[in-house]
């Protein structure tokens, strides 16, 4: 029995696939590849894989993580190469390492970095949006309405405190407009570092909602990308493929 942790990217072609559907993509890719994945015991055996933080639908990423348990020892290079040969376009394993840690990836994630492009019909000046972001970060408390399912299944809005989950944020103009977005009044790129994982998690759309409240205007379109996920070792940020995280 051996465990391998991989980093993989998700491109434009596969960004509208839900987390659940992504797991099926991997399950089928593994089956096609013939890699010796370990199956759970029981009536309905499932392949033993654990994914890091689910990627919101519509977002691209170059830093997704997953742990696989293998029934037979398999080299990381071979694993990566065979899995990539079976994965559909748009999903690429970019790194793999032997994983001896007891803690699975899902439980290890602590933070994430996002690149958030926001487009508004209204023309907004850089001074205006920069000041807005700065003022927002100065606040000790930021509350936004978070939609969640109530007991009776109906959607309810709950006020949520998000300030402690915003670690860093900066804004700049979008330099190269993506095709189809030329008609907007303004286009800005926010780089945000937010708490992520099972302990505290701030979804970027909620962060953008707070920013919109601050500016008094909402984005008419957004494009979102996850540029990093990290865990912590001894209170410091660490890459999930870092030796310290794998032992």
């Amino acid at each position: 029995m051996s465990k391998i942790r991989v980093r993989f990217s998700r491109g434009e072609a596969v960004k509208f696939i839900s987390h659940l559907d992504l797991m099926k993509v991997f399950e089928r890719a593994i089956r096609r590849s013939g890699l010796p994945i370990d199956y759970s015991k029981g009536f309905n055996p499932h392949p033993q894989m654990v994914f890091g933080l689910p990627l919101p639908v519509g977002m691209t990423s170059d830093c997704e993580y997953a742990d696989f348990t293998l029934a037979e020892e398999t080299g990381t290079e071979e694993f990566m190469q065979r899995l990539n040969a079976s994965l559909p376009e748009g999903i690429r394993v970019t790194a793999a390492a032997v994983n001896n840690s007891k803690k699975n990836i899902m439980a290890s994630i602590r933070g994430a970095e996002y690149l958030l492009q926001i487009f508004t019909n209204e023309v907004l000046s850089l001074e205006n949006v920069s000041a807005g972001l700065e003022n927002m970060l100065k606040c000790e408390s930021i509350k936004v309405g978070k939609e969640s399912k109530g007991k009776d299944g109906r959607r309810v809005l709950r006020e949520t405190e998000i300030r402690p989950m915003i670690l860093k944020a900066a804004i700049e103009p979008v330099r190269v407009l993506p095709e189809g977005y030329e008609g907007f009044g303004s286009a800005y790129l926010i780089k945000a570092e937010l708490k992520a994982g099972s302990e505290a998690n701030l979804r970027p759309d909620l962060f953008l909602k707070a920013f919109a409240q601050q500016l008094g205007t909402t984005a008419d379109a957004v494009r979102m990308h996850r540029s990093a996920l990290y865990s912590e070792v001894g209170g410091a940020k660490a890459d999930p493929l870092d030796k310290a995280c794998l032992s």
């Binding site: 509208f16 696939i17 559907d21 519509g58 379109a221």
Partner: peptide, 11 residues
Amino acid sequence: DDILQSVEKPA
């Protein structure tokens, strides 16, 4: 994206 984000099952 804003169009696809606004519809059910964009995939």
